[in-house]
Amino acid sequence: MDSLDFRNVFGKPVQYKELDIHPVKLIEANEFYDYVRCLLIPKNTFKEIEIIKMSYLKFLFYLGLKDGHPYLLESLLKLLTIVFKTENISFKTDEREKITLIIDEKNEINENDFDKIKKIICNQNLITIDDQILDPELEQKIKEAREFLQRKSGKMADLEQQIVAYHCAFKMKYDDIAELTIYQFQKGLSRMDLIKSADALQNAKYSGFVSVGENDKLPTWLTHIEESKDPNSDVLMSKGEFDAMASKNGLVG
Rank of each mutant, 00 (worst) to 15 (best):
M1Q: 00
F6H: 03
N8F: 08
N8T: 01
G11V: 05
L19A: 11
L19S: 06
D20E: 14
P23S: 03
V24K: 05
K25A: 06
I27T: 10
E31H: 07
Y33V: 12
Y33F: 13
D34G: 07
Y35N: 09
C38Y: 12
L40K: 14
I41T: 12
P42D: 14
K53G: 03
M54Q: 11
L57A: 02
L60C: 06
Y62D: 14
L63Y: 08
K66A: 11
K66F: 06
H69P: 00
P70G: 12
E74G: 13
S75W: 12
K78M: 11
L80D: 02
L80F: 10
T81V: 03
K85M: 00
S90C: 10
S90Y: 14
I102M: 13
E108F: 15
E108A: 09
I109S: 12
E111H: 06
D113R: 14
K116M: 11
K116Y: 14
I121N: 00
T128E: 15
T128G: 09
I133L: 13
I133E: 10
D135M: 06
D135G: 08
I142T: 05
I142K: 13
K143S: 15
K143C: 11
R146E: 15
E147Q: 13
K152G: 04
K155V: 14
A165S: 13
Y166R: 10
C168Y: 02
A169Y: 01
F170Q: 09
I177H: 02
L180D: 08
Q186H: 07
G188A: 13
S190F: 07
Y206R: 12
V210G: 05
V212P: 14
N215P: 00
D216N: 07
E226K: 05
E227S: 03
K229G: 02
P231Y: 15
S238M: 00
K239L: 03
G240L: 06
L251T: 04
V252F: 03
